[in-house]
Design a protein around this nucleic acid. Structure first.
Lengths: 202, 202
DNA sequence: CAAATTTATTAAACAGTGTTCAATTATCAA
DNA sequence: TTGATAATTGAACACTGTTTAATAAATTTG
């Protein structure tokens, strides 16, 4: 089966070549403005051949989405070494926002595109749920230390994620320009600091 | 000039007919999936003629965006009768979130599409800035009552808007499904309640 | 080795998109 | 009625995602 294996590897190599080209162009031009022909041209490939390796445009896109999620999760995992749960929670928000700043296009692909696939067994879903559960248990740990008392952990988690996402979402769709005389970085950093200040008083 | 006036009115009538058709289809199918031919067909018009009344597709879209903004602002204006600034602030958030729930498509058009025009004199920009200033002065009023002390009003405003927008943004892109066993309404209502609880303790 | 079969690739075609433009009709002023 | 202006049209252009029949390459089988 050595030949079949090599075949398999060659196919995966092509798979990766396509994905690399797609990543480059998707992150440059966004989902809608990237065409299958664009991706094919990038690697001197025929547009039709893409459909031999991927079902359609969304399947390519979803693989990149997955990439983004694991990239973000890896950055968050580093914080597992932070012992104090509240410190870890605060740092998680900072990492999250920094990720959005440094990977604006990934963030757009990951969180700002309408979710079409509703299959809950899909990999991206399980990753998202994992992230939410991680967040929620962090908050429960905080509660055991006396913070966020009499708050429902699930809804509180949703709120914290919403607040962080809101900051990033405004940034990623250029809706920060209406806040005059402030740079994106100032708004996001100090805005998050305000949120942290609220958390600290609770 | 009576004839010229009538002419003008007839033109504006066509302008409105197009806008009505566009609103219907944009809100049904979203920006990308709505074609100029779709809009033209809806009113038995030729696609080319649309370009006599509007520069391009984005110009039609932006008029609808403006509609959405004034619709939201009108709903918020009602709260001017609420004397206590903190009560008004809390109610504003509720109205904002309710607007997103009841006008999901408008909300997507208004806040979830990349901002291309950066002209700060554009109507939508002035409306947005008006809304932000309104929000900010409300928060300053709260501060005069002793709330949110030692917080920078501008950044605090950004944070509050972000938090509200975050809730709506997750909802509008169907990213709430990862929070299992909770409906959208439960998440948004109780999530916002958590945020209010934070505000109350500050 | 040759034939048959599987695998991979291609170009052409289909139905759709936003937009432009010359030709055409309708409307009004002189 | 003529000339000019305003409004409308359909065809065309260059693009889009996707399908498919034909082709080429590689592998398996006889």
């Amino acid at each position: 089966m050595s030949i079949a294996e090599r075949k398999q590897e060659e196919k995966q190599e092509m798979h990766q070549r396509i994905l690399n080209a797609a990543r480059k162009i998707f992150l440059e031009k966004g989902y809608e403005k990237t065409s299958m022909r664009n991706i094919a041209n990038e690697i001197n490939y025929s547009p039709g051949s893409l459909y031999f390796h991927f079902k359609d445009k969304t399947e390519i896109f979803q693989e990149l989405q997955k990439e983004g999620f694991t990239l973000l999760l890896n950055q968050l995992k580093v914080l597992n070494s932070v012992a104090d749960p509240f410190e870890r929670l605060k740092a998680s928000g900072r990492v999250f926002i920094q990720f959005a700043q440094e990977n604006k296009d990934y963030y757009n692909l990951m969180f700002m595109v309408e979710e079409t696939v509703k299959d809950p067994t899909e990999t991206r879903f399980t990753i998202a749920q994992e992230a939410i559960n991680h967040m929620c248990s962090m908050i429960r740990d905080c509660q055991q230390q006396g913070k966020f008392k009499e708050m429902d952990a699930d809804y509180f988690t949703f709120m914290v994620i919403s607040a962080m996402h809101g900051i990033c979402a405004l940034f990623c769709k250029d809706r920060t320009t209406s806040f005059i005389n402030k740079t994106n970085e100032e708004l996001m950093e100090n805005g998050y600091a305000c949120f942290v200040a609220l958390l600290e008083k609770s």
